[in-house]
Amino acid sequence: MDPVQPFDDPAMVANYAQSTPRKVPGFADLHRMAVLLLAERAPETATILVVGAGGGLELTAFAGAQAGWRFVGVDPSAAMLDLARRVLGPLQARVALLRGHVDDAPPGPFDGATCLLTLHFLTKDERLRTLREIHRRLRPQAPLIVAHHSHPTGSEPIRWLARSAAFAGEATTNSAQAAAAAASMAERLPILSVEEDEAVLRQAGFSEVALFYAALSFRGWVAAA
């Protein structure tokens, strides 16, 4: 699967800012927690790397919460970057948006980084390479925040994906619809277990890997470069 393809669909892009918060439990709180965890180690005048920045939702939350931070956001989808510019509005003055992948980001060093709702599109090898590229752009001990689909070790990912699909559909989604949506996601997304996710982070060079967010099929970790 080409991870960029869905994010170049005009209908998906037009609905992204409204639909995504409904699909991810505690979406706004995830952003608030990310800011808190970044701020524990990042200075008041930090520069933060945001990988998978298209849409601009986390950038808007981060920039609104920390007036002294500046950001570099990278994303392969031109349409999603256009959406990010619209969503950011005047906050864009503190954000540099780049089309491409992590390899296209400046060398840094950055004071922190995030990669939210992105890594589940990547195979294990691609995920490891991406995390290594993020790691080498961070200052020593700088924080990384990641969040994406994952599943408890030893469990079937499709069960957790079905629960997330049901949550996203609210009362309009019955169990059969949720199961069908989960099967489609499981086929398209190379989802790892919690144990595998944490191992990849450590293999990429990160330490102090800790789970801070768990919501149905979504998990989030904080780690130190």
Rank of each mutant, 00 (worst) to 15 (best):
A186E: 14
A105Y: 14
E198S: 01
L116V: 08
V200I: 02
R127N: 00
T172L: 08
T114D: 08
E208N: 02
L97W: 10
A171L: 13
G154C: 07
L138V: 00
A180T: 04
F206E: 12
S155F: 03
S184N: 01
P190Y: 13
R129V: 05
L201P: 07
H149V: 11
L116K: 05
Q203D: 13
A165H: 01
E133M: 06
A168G: 14
F167W: 15
P157K: 05
D125P: 05
G205Q: 00
Q92E: 11
P109V: 02
R99T: 02
L161N: 13
A147N: 10
H148W: 13
P143Y: 13
R129K: 15
V200N: 10
A179Y: 08
M185F: 06
P140S: 06
E208G: 01
A93Y: 13
S175R: 15
D197Q: 14
S164I: 03
D125Y: 01
A199C: 02
Q203E: 10
T172M: 12
G205S: 11
D103W: 08
L98H: 00
R94V: 12
P140Y: 07
L98I: 03
A168L: 14
L98V: 04
E187S: 08
T130Y: 02
L201H: 02
H120I: 00
A162N: 15
A182K: 01
R129N: 07
W160P: 13
V209K: 07
L138P: 06
L128Q: 02
L138S: 00
L128M: 06
F110H: 12
E195N: 05
S184W: 01
A168F: 02
P152L: 10
W160E: 11
I145G: 12
V209C: 09
A96G: 03
H135V: 09
R188P: 00
R99H: 04
G100T: 14
H151T: 03
A165N: 09
E195R: 03
V209G: 11
Q141Y: 10
E156C: 15
I191W: 05
I145H: 03
G169I: 04
L189M: 15
D125S: 00
H151W: 09
V209I: 10
P157M: 12
V102F: 12
L201M: 13
S184H: 06
E156L: 11
L161G: 05
L116E: 02
V102T: 11
R188F: 14
A147Q: 10
P190K: 12
W160V: 01
R159W: 15
H148S: 14
L131H: 06
M185T: 01
S164M: 11
D197R: 07
A186L: 12
